[in-house]
Amino acid sequence: MQQLKWLSKIPPKKLYCGLATAIIGLGIIGGVILKDHNKPVAAAEEIAIVRTAVIGTTKNTQEYTYSGEVRGRYESQLAFQVNGRITNRNVQLGSHVSAGDALMQIDAKDVVQTVNSNSAQVYSAESQLQLAESNLNRYRELLEGGAISQSQYDQYANTYNVAVAGVRQASAQYEQGTNQLDYTLLKANKSGIVSSISAEIGQVVSAGQIVATVIQDGDREVEISVPENRIEELRQAKDIKVTFWALANKMIAGKIREIAPMADPATRTFKVRISLLNPPPEMKLGMTASVTVVSSNVPQTITIPLTAIYQTGDTPTVWVVTDDILTLRSIKVGKFINETLIEVLEGLQQGDCIVTKGVHKLKAGQKVQAGGESL
């Protein structure tokens, strides 16, 4: 009430002027505040986080892996030495045989008849020899008594020599026949395991036709096929490791024993035999093996992921991070190393930091935060 009384003492004209001045001042202050409030705030600079990799020194070695098979060092492919029909088969696949064991037999009736004929010829030749020898002795006595001439005696001496030669010829033919009879049995020349059989009972085979294979007891090897462009690298290999699909955690050292002088006409690859230094006792013939060959004297190269390449036009480029700023750099690429890596011939060097993923979402001069791995 006292305040109202105080206001009532102020002349109305002054009161209205004071209120108007106060209202105008509040309006000016409010406008300034509103203007400052509506003023746009500078946007914060966006920093992208990218996955990067640092180019490092590549190793001067390279690994190649080949699939192979466990084989015997010596494999005998056996065949009959005479023609005939197989009548007996005494072994199965996987049978272990000793030297001299009969594996198969062919019908020997014709050979037996030939032997019998040769035997009769031997008896006949021996009889002719006995007769010629008796005549020679008789006519020698007549020659000494002067009853016959020297020319007559020489005739009987020549007949005797012919009979001796006839016996030798008949004996040789008989021996040949007995050999043919022995050839009707196919025998193992060494102890080993029968790995293949390609003829059955009742089949007619010819001389020299392979009917069975015996892997000799002893060393076991791994056979691989190598393309011609890697033969020289294989010759210079400094380390060879052999693993087996069926034997987990088994890694055996190996060495090259033999490289075929000519490529296989069908596959155009070279057969290579790898000797095993300490083969495990669990290893079996025919097992699948993987042979890893570490080649030395390989030129140093730089490889990058395919996802790091930013293709603009005909020239491949990569994003290089320098002081957290992106720059685009042209490179020259070489051959594909595998499905994810490619060789770089020019444009990069050791220590360069490149972006490996999301390269199509970046721009030159952009500030980024790097993080990744080393190549």
Rank of each mutant, 00 (worst) to 15 (best):
T58K: 02
V32I: 14
L34R: 09
V32N: 08
F80A: 02
K39P: 02
Y16E: 08
A108D: 14
S117Q: 08
T21K: 00
L7C: 02
S95L: 05
L26M: 11
E46M: 12
V54R: 03
D110G: 04
T65C: 05
L19H: 03
Q3A: 15
G72Q: 06
E46V: 14
A99L: 12
I28F: 14
V32R: 08
K59F: 04
A120Q: 13
A99G: 15
G18M: 10
T87W: 06
N90Y: 15
K5S: 08
I106L: 12
W6K: 13
T57Q: 10
R85C: 13
G84H: 06
S8L: 15
V50T: 08
T52D: 01
I47R: 06
A20F: 06
A120N: 11
E45I: 11
E46A: 12
G72W: 00
S119L: 13
G100M: 07
E46G: 07
V91N: 05
V82C: 12
G30Q: 13
I10R: 09
V50M: 08
F80N: 00
T65L: 07
S8F: 12
E46H: 11
V112W: 07
I10D: 09
A20C: 08
I24H: 00
I47Q: 06
K5D: 12
W6L: 15
D107K: 01
V97Y: 05
Q113W: 11
S119W: 04
A99Y: 13
H37Y: 09
C17A: 14
V112F: 05
I55P: 10
M104R: 03
A43W: 01
C17P: 03
T114V: 12
K14W: 13
T65V: 14
Q113S: 14
W6H: 12
L34D: 03
Y64P: 00
Q2P: 01
L103M: 01
A20V: 08
R73F: 07
V50S: 08
G68W: 10
S124Q: 06
V122K: 00
Y74C: 05
Y16V: 13
A79T: 02
Q81H: 09
I49E: 13
T57V: 12
V41K: 13
V54H: 01
T87Q: 02
